[in-house]
Design a protein around this nucleic acid. Sequence first.
DNA 1: AATTGGCTTTTATGCAAAAATAAGCCGTCA
DNA 2: TGACGGCTTATTTTTGCATAAAAGCCAATT
Lengths: 292, 292
Amino acid sequence: MTVSDLQIEIARQIVSLASSERWPVGERVSDFALARRLGVSRSPIRSALALLASRGVLAHAPGRGYVLALLPQGNSGIDGIAPPSELEDIHKRLMADRATGAIPMEVSETLLAERYNSTRGTIRKVLLRFAAEGLVQRQRGHGWAFAESLDTDQVEEESYQFRMILECGALRHPGFKVDKDHLASIRAQQAEIMHIPVASVQRDQWFNVNASFHEALAIWSGNRFLVQAVRQQNSLRRITEYAYFERLPYDRIRQVCIEHIAILDALAENDVIFAEALLRRHIEGASRYEVE
Amino acid sequence: MTVSDLQIEIARQIVSLASSERWPVGERVSDFALARRLGVSRSPIRSALALLASRGVLAHAPGRGYVLALLPQGNSGIDGIAPPSELEDIHKRLMADRATGAIPMEVSETLLAERYNSTRGTIRKVLLRFAAEGLVQRQRGHGWAFAESLDTDQVEEESYQFRMILECGALRHPGFKVDKDHLASIRAQQAEIMHIPVASVQRDQWFNVNASFHEALAIWSGNRFLVQAVRQQNSLRRITEYAYFERLPYDRIRQVCIEHIAILDALAENDVIFAEALLRRHIEGASRYEVE
DNA sequence: AATTGGCTTTTATGCAAAAATAAGCCGTCA
DNA sequence: TGACGGCTTATTTTTGCATAAAAGCCAATT
């Protein structure tokens, strides 16, 4: 039986969820709940569960569904169980190759299919994903054109500026209102990261905690367009994040958490002005670091 | 011989160029120059020229290429010579149908292909175009999901707030710099709208002039994410625009142009602070009007 | 001499039918 | 009652082939 890209990605996402939310061994894993949560139907979820069961991560109790058996440990854990889908793999390589200029600004689907030993269909999907992120455009006639000068430093700087505008705009938004429970949960996540030993901080975990902080600011503004824009930035940053994480010193991670918590605390006291000042410093600091 | 969508669109673009640049009858029409200018190869240009020749717009002098014979007059002129391509047609109808809620937020390609009596390939291209405008997104698994349309007062209010954040952010952006030529051309467009009789202001024309003003502010910030976000807002608004334009009084159109021009003039004098104040008033005013 | 027009060759995309896969339903079991 | 498992239906993805677009060449023109 073949395993589709979607199934692989879902399997990886499930492991990632289990690990970041610390599901206990023996926890029942409901396909229905996952389907609703991940926004797909139960079919791919069930394929993914079967895949994970065959790898020993889950145990299948007929009539009672799946239960968590053994969570893969360490950084290579997920990759050992279910390597990245071809889609993710090519997406990353294409991004890197474009950044280094290994491939030209204008490319054809067939050229890429050849280069990455893949099919046009897969390449098409990858390009579609790039297009959704605004990094590539279909041109009339033949081929795809990458956004002008995907000069990484330049794009990254613009991204920081853009996020500054969005998130400060969120804080000043009429009707901005903090959800106490939500804030508490975000704050707990941040505090947790700070207190676990460095080696255990998973890349995905770090990224998700980080992203949900920034997303929360947008959510509290009550403006769906801000939320959408911040989400897009988060997904864009996930790519570079992957490349840089290894080089990210633990001190830096702690520092970021401290700043996040300070901003949250200012918001908890309704001191939006101060929170905005902290946020500006925070994003500027991240910009100097090249990665947050 | 069949005529492809690209060929039709190019033919229409050529006529549009000839008319807006007032080419004299007898002007030589070089395929090479057009190819470079329109960003495609000579092949589709030549097919388009052959099409126009068969319609009597161009005359073919063997050995000396094509010359302009007779420019179609009036607004229905172009449509008479070469009706909009299927792509353009479906694009418009889909937009209208989504605006009125005739089609749901989530659609499948096959559903649309059936509805518009077309093929999935064509639908795909249309959806790709919508996706580039940020109006629709591919979902994991099946189907495409439309972005929130601006069909409720709540969403529209959020859109105004969002644009306020984006555009004021653009003006304050480090490195914000007005392109004099660009500004002059935008200003001229605004002035032109003000001085033509009301009945002649076409919906598309009004929309494009309006959109390019707001887009210009983002472009001058030099931040591609701002540009992208403003473009997306423009596309969203194009949908509601379709429904509201008929009710838009001419005085309101004039008023908007006056405000745009005032902002441009402030920018021309590098008075960004004043420009921002005017811009805030402008967007707030538009918000009160429900439609700009 | 440089550029343009006409023609030909090469390459890439578009298309339609078959295969794979996601979505949705309903009976059954804890 | 709520969730699981099997099943059906609907949608997408794939694959091989037709066709359009791109690129190259050479003669003719200014």
